[in-house]
Nucleic acid binder design. Structure first.
Length: 745
DNA sequence: ATACACGCGCTTTTT
DNA sequence: GCGCGTGTAT
């Protein structure tokens, strides 16, 4: 079979082991996606398995798409019969098909994080919870964690052991009621309800268990208990379950991913074949050695090696910048010379621990005129204008969706304020009907003439407000009508037209901001147009579902080597599964990587280590490990010592880069020396060495910004803020200098 | 009902 | 340094 030819022996074993459970432990860059794709092709071509009897679960939609492409390359069109997607998308599909039989509304909406928060706030408010003391976010994550272990609100209540967990249980119960009222499922529900459905309904369970001859799970180390349970249920009849993962790349425990699943797998399937993929086809030996040195610092880890026959390649470049601005400047400069050296924009990624760090990098890249794409941050589908329009579409799909209703009932403004809305909601609750129904009743009362008593006795809303509300209801009904008869583009046009959304944008925002937001809406129209081939009802369902389950990482442009490439700015988490010839890891500092929130939890510290490992192993040819001497965090400038992970890397693998060696060395030695270097740098006479630091007119030289003149120096707390005008393009910079001797020296 | 001003707490990571 | 919620003035 020719598909086996270009595989190494363990890969070949992983592909051809057809019968029975299989655990593939695959190091980074070991070709695991290829192995899965080949395995699917092998199952179909050689083992004669019908594609529709194979279910293959990936972590992101992008991974699913990639997988599909690869399988199509082997198998052609029949690949479209595969059940291939993320846990969430596969479950959503299953629930659409079977959900009605188990009591799910036929048109449920899927709530994303923001919707969940909105709902949770209501639940907390209903219960009178002091959200100053108990954060909505932690209540929600408590609920989420419970669901990912298949626990119900009732289970939680029984297991609650302190006040907080009791509160979580109570909030959970109310939150779940609200979801039901709104005809919505959250992310965790998608999994949990599917598991419950299969558990409680024998005929549905048997149907799928009979059907799924082979189950494949990628990124197994990132699955939670519920997902593992689901995979096991899928595979229960035929027992052909193949999971692929790498414990060293487990970085999602905060999302309830349970590293124990791998151990449990070995326990649940003692006869499972285990295959280790250790040969790396991605990185140079230098990068692998450094990454290995970092991950080896982890305790309780299965010893696993990584090797390549590629040779050592370039040393890893480290650099300590003065602050994040200079760090970003270094990145930009280095990118420019890489581009000159023949690299393409698409070859390069800049990675960071937290999204907030992207700003400094972005500014530097803009200044240097370097094209980039930002992954994460304010995502397209989280933009206000996009969410508004989606809320309209969701209302059309399911008018009982109160979260969407609340969002747009007064957007654009139509004179329905918070008070009116609250009155309406209270009234609806009194009658024990959804808000939408209450609104219909209200409309009936206002239009019908046979009214008894005063208006206030019927509904609690003022006349003007009632008119606005009825207008909104009529519009919604019209749109529902439009949706039934027309394609999705027409529906979206209808929404825009009837709401005069464009006018609203230009009234609400400055012109250029309105332009930008309108462009986003046009982009949304482009996406919607892609569904115009489907029947009206199906298109809306498919569109809303795709949008709810899509993540930003799914839209990363492929690093095509044409001239349209862009430098990628991405968090370490989102970078998992990707690879780039050149990788910059920024902010290799204590407090950032590892993050300060991990300091008191050894298990979390281990996860930070794995995160660092994941980042390093994204690099194919060149790796940069950068840090800044001080960094602005939460408004204040703070000194950050180098990351402990840097210390684990053998020095012979590293080369320290500096712009001007003397000064750069001073930077590394701390502010005292740095200041001296600063003074010494220029040709003028040294300023008086009084405690005030610099004086206006002092000539200075900075390792990155070059020569400059001090404009002012003002003491702020224990520090001095020095403003320097630099010659050439660097402009005026403010630098913070500290006189306190630092542990750094 | 809306518009603006002020204070507060906080930032991990995302399907 | 920013977004959010609360408070006050039109």
């Amino acid at each position: 079979m020719d598909i086996l030819e270009d595989l190494n022996p363990p890969q070949r074993e992983a592909v051809t082991h057809v019968e029975g459970p299989l655990l593939i432990l695959a190091g980074p860059g070991s070709g695991k996606t290829r192995v899965i794709a080949h395995r699917i092709a092998y199952l179909v071509d050689t083992a004669g398995v019908a594609p529709w009897r194979i279910v293959s679960v990936t972590f992101t939609n992008k991974a699913a798409r990639e997988m599909k492409q690869r399988v199509v390359a082997h198998l052609g069109g029949v690949a479209s019969d595969l059940v291939l997607g993320t846990f969430h998308s596969i479950c959503a599909r299953l629930l659409r098909v079977e959900g009605e039989r188990v009591g799910l509304p036929r048109a449920f909406n899927i709530y994303d994080d923001a919707d969940q928060m909105a709902l949770l706030k209501r639940a907390a408010a209903d219960l009178g919870i002091d959200t100053k003391r108990f954060k909505e976010r932690s209540l929600l994550s408590g609920i989420s964690r419970a669901k990912s272990e298949l626990l119900t609100a009732y289970d939680c209540a029984r297991a609650s052991h302190d006040y907080f967990s009791e509160l979580v249980a109570r909030t959970f119960e109310r939150y779940q009621e609200l979801l039901k009222e709104n005809e919505a499922l959250d992310f965790d529900d998608l999994i949990m309800r599917t598991v419950e459905m299969l558990r409680d309904h024998a005929e549905i369970r048997e149907k799928y268990q009979e059907r799924f001859l082979h189950v494949l799970v990628d990124e197994f180390q990132d699955t939670n208990i519920a997902q593992y349970q689901l995979a096991r249920m899928f595979a229960a009849k035929h027992g052909n379950i193949c999971v692929v993962g790498d414990p060293d790349q487990s970085i999602y425990s905060w999302r309830s991913a349970d590293i124990r699943n791998i151990l449990n797998f070995e326990r649940d399937f003692p006869q499972a074949r285990i295959v280790l993929l250790e040969q790396n086809y991605r990185s140079t030996q230098t990068i692998l050695d450094a990454a290995h040195a970092v991950i080896s610092g982890s305790k309780e880890r299965k010893q696993k090696s990584l090797w390549t026959d590629q040779g050592p390649g370039e040393p890893i470049v480290t650099y300590e910048a003065y602050d994040e601005e200079e760090e970003a400047g270094f990145v930009a400069n280095e990118i420019l010379s890489l581009l000159k050296g023949g690299h393409d924009y698409g070859d390069i990624a800049v990675m960071y621990r937290t999204n907030a760090q992207s700003r400094a990098i972005e500014e530097a890249l803009i200044a240097a005129n370097i094209r980039y794409q930002l992954v994460g941050g304010t995502r397209f589908y989280e933009r206000r204008e996009v969410k508004d329009l989606l809320a309209y579409l969701r209302l059309v799909h399911s008018p009982f969706d109160a979260v969407s209703f609340t969002r747009v009932v007064n957007v654009p403004g139509r004179g329905v304020g918070a008070k009116t809305l609250a009155d309406l909601e209270r009234w609806a609750r009194k009658m024990n009907v959804p808000v939408y129904t209450a609104l219909q009743v209200l409309a009936g009362q206002e239009t019908g003439r046979a009214s008894v008593g005063t208006r206030a006795e019927r509904h609690p809303v003022g006349a003007r407000q009632a008119r606005s509300l009825i207008g909104f209801l009529r519009m919604l009904d019209e749109l529902i009508d439009v949706a039934a008869k027309n394609n999705l583009s027409t529906l979206l046009d209808g929404v825009l037209e009837r709401t005069a959304y464009r006018r609203y944008l230009y009234e609400e925002f400055e012109e250029d901001e309105a332009d930008e937001r309108w462009a986003n809406i046009q982009e949304l129209q482009n996406v919607a147009a892609g569904y115009d081939g489907l029947a009206p009802g199906d298109a809306l369902v498919a569109f809303l579902e795709d949008v709810a389950l899509i993540s930003d990482a799914d839209t990363i442009a492929e690093g095509e080597s044409d001239h349209g490439g862009r430098v990628t700015l991405i968090t370490l988490h989102s970078a998992k599964g990707l690879e780039y010839p050149v990788v910059f890891m920024t902010a290799m500092e204590e407090g950032i990587l590892p993050h300060m929130r991990s300091f008191d939890e050894p298990a979390q510290m281990e996860e930070e280590r794995r995160l660092c490992y994941v980042g390093m192993t994204r690099a194919k040819e060149r790796l940069y490990l950068l840090r800044a001497f001080r960094r602005y965090m939460m408004g204040a400038s703070q000194h950050a010592p180098p990351s402990r992970f840097l210390r684990d890397i053998p020095p012979e693998l590293l080369v320290q880069r500096s712009a001007v060696s003397d000064e750069a060395e001073a930077v590394q030695r701390g502010p005292q020396r740095f200041r001296e270097a600063f003074r010494r740098g220029a040709d003028g006479p040294p300023a008086e060495r009084d405690e005030g630091g610099f004086r206006a007119g002092d000539k200075v030289r900075h390792p990155s910004f070059g020569d400059g003149v001090v404009v002012s120096c003002t003491p702020t707390g224990g520090d001095f803020e020095v403003t320097v005008a630099f010659k050439g393009g660097a402009g005026i910079k403010k630098l913070m200098l500290s006189f306190a001797p630092l542990e750094h020296a």
